[in-house]
């Protein structure tokens, strides 16, 4: 983390992390509300077991505490870019099915998609501060999804939203780790933040 050496960069990173933690907290709360709306709209059982879904990044991380800051940011960014594409597709499918009808679900999906896009941008900013810069998006998008039946789409949507809710928790913790002063840094510790 080359840029972390400069005190102003450290301050800027801490500031970005604090704002990111707040964003993640809000996103988590909105995704949980969206899940309720989604389950009701699709007539699904909220406790239906949907395991890993192809193309949906899993929030579960092994050896999470051993990850470097850059690694955390890169994994987060890859995840949110994937969620951005998945949510856009869910919104598109919703419109295909119901036309341009202004539904509660459509509005909530669009709002969360916006939050996910904003969070991905926030992560890119943090990566720029690490003198690393965000990786290019060209060819990094998720592979085209196979043709699914309508019921399979419903379940995939449930899987996407559940995983996104988990990611919001993980991201807040990742950013809190990132906000901690690196060893040897002279800057004061940041105030505790909670999502």
């Amino acid at each position: 983390m080359a840029a972390a050496d400069s005190p102003s960069a450290a301050l800027r990173r801490r500031d970005l992390c604090s704002r990111g933690i707040r964003l993640a907290g809000k996103m988590r709360s909105d995704v949980v509300d969206l899940l309720d709306t989604y389950v009701e709209w699709q007539g699904l059982d909220a406790s239906a077991s949907v395991a890993a879904v192809e193309g949906v990044p899993a929030a579960a991380a092994e050896r999470w505490d051993e990850q470097t800051g850059t690694q955390r940011l890169l994994e987060n960014l890859a995840a949110y870019r994937a969620f951005r594409a998945l949510l856009a597709q869910m919104l598109e499918e919703q419109r295909e099915q119901l036309g341009e009808a202004d539904t509660v679900l459509g509005r909530a999906l669009a709002a969360v998609l916006l939050q996910v896009s904003a969070f991905a941008y926030h992560l890119e900013e943090l990566l720029r501060l690490e003198s690393r810069g965000p990786p290019s998006e060209e060819g990094a998008g998720p592979p085209p999804l196979p043709h699914l039946s309508l019921f399979e789409r419903k379940l995939r949507g449930l899987g996407v939203l559940r995983e996104l809710a988990q990611w919001a928790v993980r991201s807040a913790r990742d950013l809190r780790q990132l906000a901690k002063p690196s060893p040897g840094s002279s800057s004061a510790p940041s105030p505790a933040e909670s999502p």
Partner: peptide
């Protein structure tokens, strides 16, 4: 239909797992 997104007709295994669904 109970919801406009279609009724969920689902085939389960004995342990409750979802094997397939149709709207």
């Amino acid at each position: 239909s109970k919801q406009q997104s279609g009724d969920n007709l689902v085939c389960h295994s004995r342990d409750g797992g979802i094997l397939a669904g149709s709207c």
